[in-house]
Nucleic acid binder design. Structure first.
Lengths: 199, 199, 199, 199
DNA sequence: CGTTAACCGAGACGGTACGTCCTGTCTTCCC
DNA sequence: GGGAAGACAGGACGTACCGTCTCGGTTAACG
């Protein structure tokens, strides 16, 4: 079952791992994803190329881990639940919009989304690691709202959450519009109207 | 103030142009976007590299033109209007879902969406050339529905259209779910419920 | 019969060819053969690596051509023939000794002799290109001496020439002794004594 | 004034030493000297790389020791002295020719001769360890012949021995000819004729 | 109807990065 | 402390493409 040369993870250099993450994130911001190279990362991190190839299979994989490590620190603990679904969603989506407008997030996130489009394997990891967790907290919050009657029963909450998040992501990814607070508010209102219990 | 070397388009070889398109589309399907190369296209098309560089600035630009030429043949003439908005949307989105599930469309479309994420200029062209026209017909159809009272007035139709199309595109691009007819129907129903005239 | 990608020699850049020779000879003198690298030659010559790989198969092949070009300028025109074989041989071998003691010749010559020992193909070329011509003029001179009676008939002149040159080369290659004029004189005398017509 | 880390030879593993020799000799025969690597030797010998680096400074040094150990078993005990110098020399040189034509000797011997050409230090060891002892027995035999009058007095026996051995070695090293028994006989006769007491 | 200027196929060029291999050092764990 | 194992920083390998340039050849507009 094992690959033909599994490196011994217990001997891995934590120092190098971190230097590689820092270098990858810094470089993707400076030169963009297309001009990001393994050699560049290695050189900036003061690391041999082989140390990268030993642990990752592509620059996308490095970036995914690097960005994942950053995101993990933002420890999501579920959406707020003040009892007012619309207000809660607006609060969180406004914050998310601010994050997406932050240059430090743009480059790696865009890069990974793009790389995922052409690489199914990477795409699965990207979605599972970075997008699914976010999606799940929305579904949970919607389920809670269903129990208080704010949202109709019988609705596919997964699709409901996508109605909220996909227009938002798509707008940003394709640059078809700004992610303003106004936009967020309008979107939340329109979506929630559709989720209301039917008359 | 002309560029240092504006090639004379009137002397351009139509034969070569087509051969390049065919080669680009065939290759992106066979080897994927990342391994698509200008040299590969040139060689497959039986064309000198310079003939590509003379007319396009990158492999993305070639692919965009090549795919654009294919798409143009599907000449969109607006959405049907039978008077039943939901039915009309389902009809068209089901057809679109089938298209997106067609392997011949996947590779170039994904490639361009991905390339656009990292290249703002390309992104603008991609959206303007391939996505905007599609979006526009939806907005038009929604406006018609607004006039018949099926959709509430005062709604931002652009955002409404995005609520319909973005979850759909995102699902496909990120591979977070299948584009089935059932999915389309559910999505349309949920969205339209949100667009109904308020009580 | 042809190799799978014969480059077009008529388009070859003479400028690059010369720059490569110069760089190779300079570097082998500066850093030695073992630390001579294709990358180093390319970089010093201001040339792409591929330009070297296109025309040569190894650093040894480059060096052989480079050194060959230098040697060719020394245009051998046969040994002098004053009628005194011993004197003629001493004159020429003394000059050769001086050449072999010249640092500029040492590095490439040693390198090629060494590389040839481990690479039969290269060895054939090295011998044929650089050593055979030298050997031949000695054989010719000995043949002339045979006609004047200075050298016995029936002697294998090839072996005779080797008796003269091999101890000389071996001494230099293996560093088992100095190549002084005295040494040369002694060697010539001993060898010629063996070649004298038998009593 | 000891080196920074003089390993304690008394604790050295004889088992590893032998495994390294065997691996080095086997590999140089299989893949040639250029592709012989320390890693390859270590791995084939079932030994850590450090165990090699601890005791030798280069692959050439390993090979020299390995080959030296083999040669030592051939324990030279001087040339035969039947009273007939020519016959004795032919006997021994014929045997040597057979040895040099044996594939098992070729690779390491050639490799070391080549490595010596570019590495003065190695060259001294190689000559001193493997070539000098052989040379010495020839000089001794010639001296004995001088005392019986077969060889002229006043001759530099060192140079005389080289006249015999260098053409032989050179021919083999440079592949300029076969080492046949006929060749050996002719060479011995020619050389001895030159060494005869002058008239 | 010949001249000539541009596009064209071809591919050599100076470069950059790839992913692999090996070097020589260092660290860990075992005996 | 020697030895097996192997991660590490470093660097060269030989390959693949990049985007530029130069070379005939062909082809269309102009004189």
């Amino acid at each position: 079952m094992a690959q033909p040369k599994a490196p011994d993870a217990s001997r891995r250099s934590e120092r190098s791992r971190r230097a590689i993450f820092d270098a990858a994130l810094a470089l993707v911001g400076e030169v963009g994803y297309d001009k990001l190279t393994i050699e560049g990362i290695a050189s900036r991190a003061g690391v041999g190329k082989q140390t990268i190839y030993r642990w990752w299979s592509s620059k996308a994989a490095v970036l995914l881990d690097a960005f994942g490590a950053v995101v993990d620190e933002y420890d999501q603990e579920g959406l707020p639940d003040t009892g007012d679904l619309a207000a809660d969603l607006k609060t969180v989506l406004r914050a998310t919009a601010d994050e997406f407008n932050d240059a430090a997030w743009q480059a790696p996130y865009r890069a990974l989304a793009a790389a995922g489009a052409n690489d199914e394997e990477l795409s699965r990891t990207f979605v599972g690691r970075l997008m699914e967790p976010g999606m799940r907290v929305y579904v949970d919050r919607l389920r809670a709202a269903q129990e208080t009657g704010e949202v109709a029963t019988g609705i596919d909450l997964r699709i409901a959450a996508e109605m909220l998040m996909s227009p938002f992501s798509q707008r940003w990814l394709m640059r078809t519009g700004e992610l303003t607070h106004d936009y967020v508010d309008t979107l939340v209102d329109l979506v929630l109207h559709g989720l209301r219990p039917r008359d």
